[in-house]
Simulated scan of single mutants.
Amino acid sequence: MSMTELDPRGLIRESYRIEGISGPECRSIFLDWALGAVAGADLKVQIAALLAHYSDAFPDHPMTQVLREGLADAAPGKRRGGRKARLER
């Protein structure tokens, strides 16, 4: 997959060009990118390709960190309550 196919709107590319961008701003850009990612393709494969492309040139950039976090497995959800939890005491 080419960079144009992975990042058709150039969101990730532009985030690397913004001087002084912060982690929360990168997370917001990443979420926008993920919502518009190529349908039907494995998101982790796409993230890995972006990381491979940008991480060597920008190892300490906040977007590189966000992409690394995007590859990590999500923590399992926890039950937060409800009727059953209250009755099982």
Rank of each mutant, 00 (worst) to 15 (best):
T4P: 00
T4D: 13
L6F: 14
L6W: 11
D7Q: 00
D7V: 02
R9E: 15
R9H: 14
G10E: 06
G10Y: 05
G10R: 03
L11K: 05
L11N: 08
R13N: 05
R13Y: 10
E14N: 15
E14H: 12
E14P: 03
Y16Q: 04
R17M: 11
R17C: 04
I18L: 05
E25T: 07
E25S: 12
R27F: 15
I29H: 07
F30P: 06
L31F: 15
W33T: 01
W33M: 01
G36T: 00
G36R: 00
G36A: 00
A37H: 09
L43V: 13
V45D: 13
I47N: 02
I47C: 02
A48S: 13
A49G: 08
L50A: 01
L51Y: 10
A52R: 09
A52K: 10
Y54C: 00
P59G: 09
P59Q: 07
P59N: 07
D60F: 14
T64A: 07
V66M: 06
R68Q: 14
R68E: 14
E69W: 14
E69T: 01
G70R: 04
L71S: 07
L71A: 09
L71M: 13
A75P: 12
P76K: 01
P76D: 08
K78W: 08
R79Q: 10
G81K: 03
G82T: 12
G82K: 12
G82R: 10
K84Y: 12
R86W: 10
R86A: 15
L87S: 01
L87I: 07
